[in-house]
Design a protein around this nucleic acid. Structure first.
Ligand SMILES: [Zn+2]
Ligand SMILES: [Zn+2]
Ligand SMILES: [Zn+2]
Ligand SMILES: [Zn+2]
Lengths: 132, 132
DNA sequence: TACACAATGTTATATTATAACAATTAACAC
DNA sequence: GTGTTAATTGTTATAATATAACATTGTGTA
């Protein structure tokens, strides 16, 4: 089968909401906010999230147990992700830097492991929070 | 106060166990295994883990919610961590590559964020699992 | 001693995520 | 269309991960 292009009902509901809020959001927060659309149980959210992550529509911010919509149009599969995270205001941005991604894709570890995916999270202070 | 060098009782118990098992281990698994040492509640484990992470004795593998002892002697504070993770056998190794760490420490994102920490997780197949 | 702070002990609870199973719907070959 | 398969959904219950709140004890230091 080709990469899925048409989303199922629940997948679309969850994706629509994540894209609308435009910031990292947690699974149970999604649940509360889509209950009016008919989604009632955590599993319905988690199943949609799993699929959306798999096809690269969203990413999981591992250190925060939160999900964000992909902002990187050429990132159709979540195999090479990088984020900046402000430890003060919790703002998260997806980093799109071709030199960085090239460097990491080509990285060879000494143990000879074959990598097919990476996730990188930078932490610090965003511009706004630096001033304060 | 200077960087803590002497660990408290619970911190030492938890660290000893993590160093002994020598692979990523989860908080509740630690709890079960140190109960004979007198640690009874999750919170006692989590508090020790928090401190051990803070001082760089252990690291959290975010994608696995698991903890490993630091193998990188010059990594006294968990500010720059990189791991390789086998998606088949779940073996985890801490990557110690000065070029990589230099590259990431110097990385400047376009939004002008000031980074003070990063965590990188590579996923793939270890040598053993590649053969199968 | 007195103070501040770190660590402990304990109970309860919050948060995040999955198991198990039945029912329904979509995709596709014939 | 029929049958077959896989994907998706619905539902209840439960597992796994993590923190809140509060009282107490230990430790370093002025
Ligand atoms: Zn992306
Ligand atoms: Zn900020
Ligand atoms: Zn380390
Ligand atoms: Zn392996």
């Amino acid at each position: 089968m080709l990469k899925q292009e048409i989303l199922s009902k629940n997948q679309q509901i969850v994706l629509d909401y994540i894209e609308k809020v435009n910031e990292p959001i947690k699974a149970y927060s999604i649940l509360h906010n889509v209950q009016k659309k008919g989604i009632k149980a955590p599993l319905q959210v988690y199943r949609a999230l799993d699929k959306l992550v798999e096809i690269g529509k969203i990413h999981k911010i591992e250190s925060r147990n939160a999900f964000v919509a992909c902002k990187n149009s050429n990132c159709q599969i979540s195999k090479a992700t990088a984020f900046s995270i402000c430890e003060s205001c919790e703002e998260v941005s997806e980093i799109s830097d071709s030199k960085l991604s090239k460097y990491l894709k080509n990285f060879q570890d000494k143990a000879g492991m074959k990598f097919n995916k990476y996730n990188l999270e930078f932490f610090g202070l965003c511009k706004k929070c630096s001033i304060k």
